[in-house]
Design a protein around this nucleic acid. Structure first.
Lengths: 228, 228
DNA sequence: TGACTTAATTATGAATTCAAAATTACGCTG
DNA sequence: CAGCGTAATTTTGAATTCATAATTAAGTCA
């Protein structure tokens, strides 16, 4: 019964599954640059795997929209386009709204305390102008609400769409005005969550996503203009 | 330029992509029975392909929740559980609500006429007690609204979740009461769509999904009781 | 006979191989 | 030397092969 050789819990996960996660990380960190070709051979060497599991992973990523497969030409890292942002944020808005509704029905007091704590940390990061920390905690808050909704399907749907929006660095690019607005929205989010006011939380979350959409689109437009 | 040998448009699609579609069909038609193991070898013979593209397709289906991969044990067709239905229908409700909102903003008069026509056909099927035709047209109506929303991301998200709910035969199993209720809901859906009344259409669609959820859950419970 | 071990078989996961397509490099012609 | 066509190279998609894990079958002993 004892497994002497086992240093820690058995990470029995298939290669392709592991690769899906790794590649997602590479893509949202823009280590794999959007618009460029996925360097199949390089990645195989890098991860020490053969093409078979890597290609399996690429099919999955393609169905999630992180890469695009061109027949007989290989896989390409997809760019975040304005059209895509205009499509995805409304869907995320609807899903987050639902997560807010459900969270208000199911969240425990302890979980609310956790969110309060995260919120305070986030405000601290805002005060410190620490954008990286801010974003990291921000995500944790959204995720905490999502988990409190107790709906695994909702969680993975949101997760998949969020990933697509997390590519590129533009998220870390907010004007001071937008940052302040976002913080105010988050104040209301916390307020309605604590009050367990589902309808208002839902509305606020949808609005929050809408603001985010506008901000991202504006940034992409400016970026597009810069590059010509 | 002329391609003499080409009987119709070039269906240049990769094997794995083709297989994803075929397997989806097999699963939602329950040709691959839920709960059973995916017969890899049999399918390879059947489709005349090797294991490589088939396994690629299975990874994609797994990420969509149609099969479950057990490490070193193969792929299994997932069952529709009550828990899953309780999760998926609320998400579908939120997405359909959004599709209703957006459709009211973007649908053309011609498209509304198409929906009207489909609705009339559906009522005809109801009168004829032709459940198969009813369901087929019903899906076309929902899809028409979805397409009128002009949001491809929304379309594919809905599509993926709908597929999961289309497995098994229970959809073709409605009580007379539920059928009548569904028809009434569809009357209101058409009414609000024609009036381009987004908020009310959204509400009605969410309610429609909720009724569907209840009906399916009840049926699954009865089914579960029958089998012990 | 029935539980437990161990060997044979089968199926799985992943690496390798191979044919076909695409890309690049090269040379020819004007 | 620019543009075109052809050959060499590389890359891709998919079949095949191979090591390993899981399952089944056979055999042992109480």
């Amino acid at each position: 019964m004892d497994q002497i050789t086992n240093p820690q819990a058995i990470t029995r996960t298939s290669l392709h599954h592991e690769l899906v996660g790794r590649l997602q990380t590479l893509i949202i960190n823009a280590d794999l640059e959007p618009g460029l070709k996925v360097p199949e051979k390089l990645l195989c060497d890098q991860f020490g795997v053969s093409r078979t599991p890597l290609r399996e992973a690429l099919k999955v990523l393609a169905s999630d929209g992180l890469v695009r497969l061109e027949p007989n030409r290989g896989a390409w890292v997809t760019r975040v386009t304005i059209e895509e942002v205009e499509e995805v944020f409304p869907v995320l808005g609807a899903l987050e709204a639902l997560s807010g509704e459900l969270a208000c029905q199911n969240i425990t007091d302890a979980e609310i305390d956790t969110v309060k704590d995260l919120h305070a940390q986030m405000m601290q990061s805002y005060g410190d102008s620490d954008l990286d920390a801010y974003f990291s905690i921000n995500q944790k808050i959204h995720r905490a609400i999502l988990l409190a909704a107790r709906n695994g399907t909702l969680t993975s749907s949101c997760q998949a769409l969020s990933l697509r929006m997390q590519r590129a660095r533009y998220l870390a690019n907010m004007t001071q005005g937008r940052w302040q607005e976002a913080v105010q929205e988050h104040e209301r989010i916390l307020e309605f969550l604590v009050a367990r006011d589902g309808p208002n939380l839902a509305r606020t979350l949808t609005g929050h996503m809408n603001s985010k959409r506008l901000s991202v689109v504006r940034w992409l437009q400016a970026e597009g203009a810069k590059r010509g």
